[in-house]
Design a protein around this nucleic acid. Sequence first.
DNA 1: CACTTGACCTGTCCGC
DNA 2: TGCGGACAGGTCAAGT
Length: 289
Amino acid sequence: MPELPEVETIRRGLEGLIVGQEINSVKVLFSKQATAKDLAVIAGQKVEAVKRRGKVLLIELNSKLTLLIHLKMTGQLILVQKSGDRFGGGHPTKSMQDRLPDTSTRVIFTFKSGDTLFFNDQRKFGWVKILPTGLVDGESLIAKLGPEPLEEGFKLADFKAQLAKRSVPIKPVLLDQTTVSGLGNIYVDEALHLAKIHPRRRANMLSAQKVEALYQAIPKVLNDSLGYGGTSFTNFVNHLGFMGDYLKHARVFKREGQLCPVCNTTIQKIRVGGRGTHICPKCQPAPKV
DNA sequence: CACTTGACCTGTCCGC
DNA sequence: TGCGGACAGGTCAAGT
């Protein structure tokens, strides 16, 4: 479930807290998601930058190595700081300290400072791996990613061309990371509602106006969510263990039975491409087919 | 090649 | 109360 806004929320949080810190040790508790032998080399290295590509978090280390982390659906990355009062009261360091590690903890990174970074993942779909920084762009998943929707490289003309090539419903096209990177089930539903497009409309049948509305809706919903610290409805928490607030402000996602914020029609939940999908039947009229 | 389906996992919820 | 089954959804492999 962590999509672009959730991973970016974690990235921003971690960036301010671990850049410059030296890693002391790494403990792998579940070897299918991370290889202890490979990760051992990062002991003694310093964090130089925390980046993101699509939904993948990239922690760059000195000696030109990068730690790649994908949270998939239930992954969490939580930093427990040694000194709980370093950033003033109120953050959950104390309680997280008591709670972690827990049964979903898969990897534990310990810093020289005494801070600890926990990679938790209830469903074990996520992964942690280490690569030479120069090979990150060629990594199988990253090499295929489409443009970052919040950056300059996301161009209307390219987006149009991508959609024109696809005859399937627009929803799976947006979920496909090669079209645009970072979207998942939440923000696809939100963007399609904002653009007033039914998720079953064929991508190559959308009018130029609809494609443009969608092109604008995508960064809009992502930025809105970033402003609320992402979306939490099952597992997502940020780098300090806090939940995101976007769901309270969502347009349609997880709101079946409630009223559309635009026209007050009852929101429905349907299935598109095997995915639970939320729509306003009035704002997003079904294609004729 | 374009597209669809199943697998990977575990916790939760629903109906009986 | 317990149990089977559906469901949650990101990505990849294998299928049509």
